[in-house]
């Protein structure tokens, strides 16, 4: 584990109301994640890994306990503050890429920077840099429909990385990719983790992803079953 703590979770519970009563998705989670970690929350469907990622990403709030991300308690954030945290410090990578179809690769990657209100020359520099990391400089003017699945996911990573976030949250990032593309994507993320010291947190049950993790947090029924450092 690296030094400074970016994510601190204490006695975290998340309870969802259901028609028959309530469902406890997370049940007393305690963990910390430090800078430049390459961590995966793994477990079967329904184990609570996506709920945990949602709370870390300020997309949801704890029912009980405390989640502090980059010094900010998620429970205390209002909607605008949560959006600001996501906009400025967090990057998201989705299973199905979720690129905006009418925009080019350049414009898709540029979008988070527009929300940060950076000037045009700065945006251009950062977008080109991000696309260079991902090896997409020849696809700048392409639309998502003209790209392969692997290329789309690389664009999604470029979009997540362009603002150089402190934390990147990736929910099943390789689920729609074949083995070769999955390894390429994961190698790229490892490289970014090493070079930029960005913290990556995955929610996954894909063995290919797990094989690249430096830390694996296993969840079962909303509880941490095992938290292990993996030495490759």
């Amino acid at each position: 584990m690296e030094n400074s703590t970016l994510i601190s979770i204490e006695a975290l519970k998340k309870i969802f109301p259901t028609s028959g009563g309530k469902f406890t998705a997370l049940n007393g989670i305690n963990l910390t994640i430090g800078k430049a970690e390459f961590t995966g929350v793994v477990g079967p469907s329904g184990s609570g890994k996506t709920t945990l990622l949602n709370i870390i990403g300020s997309l949801d709030t704890p029912s009980e306990g405390r989640a502090v991300v980059l010094g900010q308690s998620i429970s205390d954030l209002n909607v605008k503050q949560a959006a600001l945290l996501r906009r400025s410090k967090l990057g998201f990578i989705f299973q199905s890429y979720n690129l905006l179809p009418v925009y080019t690769v350049f414009e898709n990657v540029e979008f988070p920077l527009l929300l940060l209100k950076l000037d045009e020359s700065q945006r251009k520099k950062m977008v080109l840099e991000s696309l260079e990391w991902l090896g997409l400089t020849d696809k700048i003017k392409s639309k998502p429909a003209q790209l392969s699945g692997g290329e789309c996911q690389r664009v999604a990573i470029a979009r997540a990385m362009v603002k150089k976030p402190e934390i990147v949250l990736a929910d099943e990032p390789t689920a729609n990719l074949d083995a070769a593309n999955s390894h390429n994507i994961l190698k790229t993320m490892v490289q970014l983790n090493n070079e930029l010291k960005t913290t990556f947190v995955f929610a996954t049950h894909d063995d290919k992803v797990i094989s690249y993790l430096k830390r694996k947090i296993s969840l079962i029924d909303g509880k941490v079953l095992k938290d292990e450092i993996i030495k490759n």
Binding site: G57, V79, F92, N98
Partner: peptide
Amino acid sequence: YIEFGTRLAIGEDYSH
């Protein structure tokens, strides 16, 4: 729907 969802996740707020 996906576009709005993605934009919310990236950090755009509802009112924007």
